[in-house]
């Protein structure tokens, strides 16, 4: 008997008593705090109107959001060309579609960059459609396009970096590690600033890329460093026996990588990759440093308008909720992908 004298745990009955008390207290507090917020957000809010004067004093003034909806979505993209933005975002989606196609998910590595290029071509005109300089791109569409295009090109670069960090050649290994460590230690805003201001000083103007393109390239290479670390984690999780089995079957080095190691590594790395992509999507707001107006910039612009002055709370709550919805949606989508992959392999989920 005495050998098993573990300290006794609180009994279930007593614990559930305190649980009830704490639960009730929290619920009451929430009601007291949340109810006025909900009143302000919905009940007393004004949804339509031409200026702040149309809004009641007790509630939120969402009239600004509805009045500025086209700009919030598309920025100052020329009227009548909005369809191009819609189609451009659709191109991104089409490029990413094979991801949902279990047997050929790897095809995304080819289709996504094509989709991204099609997206940029549609936005800019590519010499066929009327040209729209990137200074006119903006709104939520800009956040989505910059985020997705950067991520699409950052992943292959990140994979190459992660492989380089495991190279047997010391020069390649050291260069890749130095790159990843240097980039991860720099804030994105500094990198963007360098791309916007420093690069034009160093490169003759006739070679220089458009300002937004420079920003996208900067974000791509910035993000690649983070993706490289996520993929490296996945690579380390693939057991040595997998490589041995593949080599014993006669697969060449690159085949072992493409058909055996990477599919497993990327699946393991998916949560970390999605995590870093969510971070990237939120960071797209920082492109204000190059003077284009993303969703945050458009709203900042709106509240500086005399008609909507003083509506910063509404503006930032709306931006916050929009990003929250996007990022939460992404996180649920990736969780669904993981569950489906696990189910396909019969793992208990």
């Amino acid at each position: 008997m005495s050998a098993c004298a573990f300290p006794s745990l609180p009994t279930r009955a007593r614990r559930s008593w305190t649980a009830w008390a704490v639960g009730l207290a929290v619920a009451l507090a929430a009601l007291v705090l949340v109810a006025p917020a909900l009143r302000w957000l919905f009940w007393d809010a004004t949804w339509v109107g031409q200026s702040r004067a149309a809004c009641g004093p007790a509630g939120a003034c969402w009239a600004m959001i509805t009045a500025r909806a086209p700009q919030i979505l598309l920025g100052f993209y020329p009227a009548g060309h909005g369809w191009r933005v819609g189609l451009a975002v659709a191109m991104l989606a089409v490029g990413l579609a094979p991801l949902a196609w279990r047997r050929r998910a790897g095809l995304t590595m080819l289709t996504a960059p094509v989709g991204a290029l099609a997206c940029l071509a549609l936005m800019g005109g590519a010499g066929i459609l009327p040209s729209v300089p990137s200074a006119y791109w903006g709104g939520l569409a800009l956040n989505l396009i910059v985020g997705a295009v950067s991520a699409i090109f950052a992943l292959p670069i990140g994979i190459l970096l992660s492989l380089a960090r495991r190279s047997t050649l010391p020069v390649i290994r050291i260069l890749a590690s130095a790159y990843v460590e240097a980039v991860r230690a720099a804030p994105l805003i500094v990198v963007l600033f360098a791309a916007a201001v420093l690069v034009p000083l160093l490169i003759p103007p006739q070679w220089s890329l458009d300002k937004l393109t420079r920003a996208i390239v900067a974000i791509t290479f910035f993000e690649a460093a983070y993706m490289a670390e996520a993929v490296r984690g996945g690579l380390m999780a693939v057991p040595q026996g997998q490589r041995e089995a593949a080599r014993a079957l006669g697969l060449k080095g690159w085949q072992v990588l493409v058909f055996v190691v990477l599919p497993q590594a990327l699946r393991t790395a998916t949560p970390a990759l999605v995590n870093s992509f969510i971070g990237l999507l939120k960071d797209t707001s920082l492109i204000y440093v190059i003077g284009v107006l993303d969703i945050t910039g458009v709203l900042r612009n709106a509240v500086s308008d005399y008609a909507w002055q003083g509506l910063e709370p509404e503006a930032y709550i709306f931006v916050g909720l929009t990003f929250w919805l996007l990022c939460f949606g992404l996180s649920r989508w990736s969780a669904a992908l993981e569950r489906r992959a696990a189910r396909a392999q019969g793992a208990p989920s």
Partner: peptide, 26 residues
């Protein structure tokens, strides 16, 4: 041909695809 203690089947491929990977690719 080699058979390992830990099997080392490729977990992301079906049994059939495990058996056809090398014949197709190699």
């Amino acid at each position: 041909g080699m058979v390992f203690q830990a099997f080392n089947l490729f977990p992301h491929l079906s049994i059939l695809d495990n058996c056809t990977l090398a014949p197709i690719r190699v």
